[in-house]
Amino acid sequence: MGAPQQAGSAFGERLRDWRVRRRFSQLELSLAAEVSARHLSFLETGRSRPSRDMVLALADALDVPLRERNVLLTSAGFAAGFPQRPLEAPELTAVRVAVDTVLRGHLPNPALAVDGRWDLIAANGAVPLLLEGVDQELLGPPTNVYRVSLHPDGLAGRIVNFDEVAHHLLSRLRREVQISGDDGLADLLAEVERYPSVRSLPRHLDVPADVVIPLRLRHPEGELAFFTTITTFGTPVDVTVAELAIETFFPLDERTDTRLGELMPSD
């Protein structure tokens, strides 16, 4: 009789954490998940155990990431519901082909694929142009985009508008920590916030007049200026695919476009 109560309590604690993280009251969550507020209260305190469908309904209402939905399921005594296959798995062949197609097709512009903790998974032949001068220890494996971008021995000294870019990256990482509840991302945030290049940032910056915050990078062949887009996979049911993202770099000006064509001719 003790094990079910422990499982219920573990689930209830995690459920409450996610409800608070999403800033839902018990009433708001009960309405969103179509469950009585009383039953929801019992679930959080461990007085009631949820069904598998109830766990998934609550996770859906709270927009819990797939990785953490598995944690909710196992904490309630159920098997994980969402597989986490390695990208090399046969079942993910179509995903690998899609990633490779996007990366190759974006040449001569840089493009890269990262996992949920911003570790580099794949990159096209133009990405090394961005990484010239980066300390080899930062290039891993794994190569983490945030470490490379914000570390003093990484790109921090080469980014012309470092204050703007760093503020944007830190804001994005803090938001992802809050949204995902991922301890690995929280550890990464704590690490980069200790970097001297980050600690010396001004606390507030004026909003730039640009349409997007550019990345202006010093390069031996002259300054390169980019804006970036991030693409994710729609309707994933695999943790690896859900956390996979492709970041593509586009020239911000004609000079950068010309330089990239000279430095990295397309196939």
Rank of each mutant, 00 (worst) to 15 (best):
F11V: 05
G12N: 02
R14T: 11
L15V: 06
R19G: 08
Q26D: 02
A33Y: 06
E34D: 13
H39M: 10
H39A: 08
L40Q: 02
S41Y: 07
E44V: 14
R49N: 15
R52A: 10
D53F: 00
M54Q: 12
V55Q: 08
A57I: 02
A57D: 12
D60L: 09
V64C: 03
L66M: 07
R67C: 01
R67P: 00
R69L: 12
V71P: 04
V71W: 11
L72T: 08
L73V: 07
L73R: 07
A80C: 05
G81C: 14
R85C: 05
L87K: 09
E88P: 01
E91H: 09
R96Q: 14
R104Q: 13
H106S: 06
P108I: 02
P110A: 06
D119Q: 14
I121E: 12
A122C: 08
A123R: 15
A123C: 12
G125T: 04
G125L: 03
P128M: 03
V134M: 02
Q136E: 11
L138K: 11
L139H: 05
L139A: 02
R147N: 07
R147A: 13
H151D: 13
P152S: 03
D153E: 10
D153Y: 13
R158S: 08
F162S: 04
H167M: 11
H167D: 12
H168A: 11
S171A: 14
S171W: 15
R172C: 00
R172I: 03
L173K: 13
I179S: 07
S180Y: 04
D182S: 13
L185M: 13
L189N: 03
L189F: 05
A190E: 10
V198A: 03
L201E: 10
L201C: 10
P202K: 04
P202H: 03
L205E: 00
D206N: 08
V211L: 14
V212T: 07
I213A: 08
G222Y: 15
F227V: 15
T229L: 13
I230C: 06
G234P: 00
G234I: 03
T235M: 12
P236I: 12
V237T: 14
D238A: 15
V239C: 15
L244N: 09
L244D: 06
I246W: 04
F250R: 01
R255E: 10
R259E: 12
R259N: 01
R259L: 15
L263G: 10
P265S: 04
D267T: 07
